[in-house]
Amino acid sequence: MTTPILQFGTSRFLQAHADLFVSEAMEAGKALGPITVAQTSGDPARAGRIGALSAPEGFPVIIRGLEEGVPVERELRVRSVARSLSTARDWPEVTRIFVEEARVILSNTGDTGYALFEGDGIDGVPRSFPMKLLALLHARFRGGRMPLTILPCELVSRNGEVLRQVVVDLASRHTPNATFVSWLSERVIWANTLVDRIVSEPIEPAGAIAEPYAIWAIERHAGLTLPCEHPCIKVVDDLTPYERLKLHILNLGHTVLADRWLKGRRSEMECVKDIL
């Protein structure tokens, strides 16, 4: 089985967001196909999660909260992940999939996901995510394959543009090939995205509990390839209104509650209902 979607990161957020969307779209015949998930951290403590993500029976996501003012709780099974690998252990296979199968790349590598390491390079298994991405894109370019779409899901404003600049700068230093650098910056699609969904609790070894609300806003780009069609995925001309909605209404409300909790020296065991 080929996997046209290659995902970097095993976060609970992605499990209850992109992985769930693709799973539901596959059931409706509206997805590119299944996902290969690649762990980028190499954390041995997450070895159990890696195996559970691609179990044939899938993994659970429980949707819990208010939906149009009505309390809901339902359990869904996510079966979109066909393979789960580790870049530390399975780098040759990750490279093969990136070069031969992938059409869309997803990533959610955490708050420091774009950080670089001194002395890192494209030989062997690179340490940082941007250097890993550069090495894989270089392998795809050398293999004569078509460009692809990269959908970063890190909470960085203009994340596609930021990641592109980081990778292009690295390419200029580590792979000084003008044709390759041009291919990276002009033909690979680096989409700006904004994601949102509160994932409140993990389910071991894989799965999560999440709120009903979810959005994946993707800025329109010529040549853009989507992983699937889903009601929560919106292709928009400008992400700015969605960023303002998230920061000024959703996140601001969380910040105000946290401020009240800290100033009132409330117990960490209290919930929002107690604070209000």
Rank of each mutant, 00 (worst) to 15 (best):
R260Q: 14
L239V: 06
L133S: 08
M146G: 06
P130W: 12
A135L: 02
A16L: 07
P231R: 12
S200V: 08
Q15N: 05
G65R: 01
A135V: 04
T179G: 15
L163V: 01
G51A: 05
P176D: 03
G58A: 15
D90N: 08
F13G: 01
R266K: 11
T255I: 07
T193C: 15
I5Q: 00
L226R: 11
R158H: 09
E93R: 08
I215T: 10
H230Y: 06
P130D: 11
F21T: 02
L136N: 03
P147E: 02
P92H: 09
L20G: 00
G9V: 08
I50T: 13
T3F: 09
Y242H: 15
G253A: 13
G33K: 05
A135T: 08
L252A: 10
I189P: 00
D90E: 04
D237K: 09
A135G: 05
S80M: 06
A45R: 13
R89G: 00
R49V: 14
S182L: 05
P126H: 08
A206E: 00
E101P: 09
D274L: 12
P147W: 06
L137G: 10
P92A: 04
G207I: 05
T175E: 12
N192A: 07
G124L: 07
R145L: 07
I215M: 14
G29C: 11
A139E: 11
V235C: 12
E68K: 10
L136Y: 02
L148H: 01
D169C: 03
R173Y: 01
V78G: 00
H17N: 04
L14N: 04
T36M: 05
C228S: 01
S80R: 02
T2G: 02
S41A: 13
P60A: 03
S128C: 07
A55G: 03
L184H: 01
A38E: 03
P71F: 05
L66H: 12
R83S: 03
R64Q: 15
L250N: 15
T112A: 14
T10L: 06
A52T: 08
L136I: 06
T36E: 12
D123F: 13
F8M: 11
R74D: 11
R12F: 09
S172F: 00
E100G: 00
S84Q: 07
L239G: 06
M26H: 08
K273L: 12
R187E: 15
A52W: 01
A52N: 11
E68P: 03
R127E: 13
P4K: 13
F59S: 00
W91M: 14
S200A: 13
F180W: 01
T10Q: 14
H248C: 12
R164A: 08
Y213H: 11
D169S: 11
R127K: 15
D19K: 02
A217N: 09
L226P: 01
K132V: 02
N177L: 04
K234N: 14
L262I: 13
I105H: 10
K132T: 09
T87Q: 15
